[in-house]
Design a protein around this nucleic acid. Structure first.
Lengths: 106, 106
DNA sequence: TATATTAGCAACCGATTGGTTTCACAATTA
DNA sequence: TAATTGTGAAACCAATCGGTTGCTAATATA
């Protein structure tokens, strides 16, 4: 089945899973503990996220650790990039102020 | 009906519409000319995009011009921002950090 | 060896999706 | 005024979605 990153992140539960495992790899059971659904439902979400390469699997004994593939997340940003310029121009002045503040802090 | 930006951009036709009208406002008929679907199908997409505030309408006589609300597009970038930091680090560096963390966990 | 744990798959279900055709209505134009 | 044009809404349809329950396979543990 053809999977699309944009279709994958359309579901709020899947976005929550992405945020959840962003820092550390987790097993399906551990992930499911964070949601009010069955383990099987979460398993389906993991399948969809894995099929579009947003998630990587690493088997450890009978456990499978799922982790986020940051490179694939960049795909969303790539699509967004052309539009991004528009709002960056709008907040250009603010950006300038912020970067100046950062430099001063360092 | 509850509309979500992420659900809105999940459809490839809707993403194409966004790209199409990014530069200039267009009428439903003009937009529909660019797709192999009926005008009514495009009208539905425009409704969904408008409901989640990605599109703005401007009536001119009997014509309605649709334009992109760039500010709403930023919402996607906002969700992406925390992850963005990860891929902005050089990838080999990130890989090193991650593998070190994994080894520490074991 | 027997039992418990971890995980994915299959079948089913109601709701939603994206599409179509048909229709209604307002604004332009002949 | 009558016909045309631009648009949205309604009704319908097959396909997909997110969820459930029940099952099987593999690994770990008593």
């Amino acid at each position: 089945m053809r999977r699309d990153v944009f279709q994958a992140i359309a579901d709020p539960t899947r976005r929550a899973i992405i945020t959840l495992i962003a820092f550390q790899a987790m097993t399906p059971n551990a992930i499911a503990d964070n949601f009010h659904t069955t383990r099987q439902a979460v398993s389906k979400h993991l399948r969809i996220l894995t099929e579009c390469a947003l998630l990587k699997q690493e088997q450890q004994g009978r456990e499978i650790y799922y982790s986020l593939d940051i490179a694939k997340m960049k795909e969303i940003d790539t699509w967004l990039a052309p539009f991004k310029k528009s709002w960056e121009i709008k907040f250009d002045q603010l950006d300038h102020v912020l970067s100046t503040l950062k430099k001063q802090r360092k």
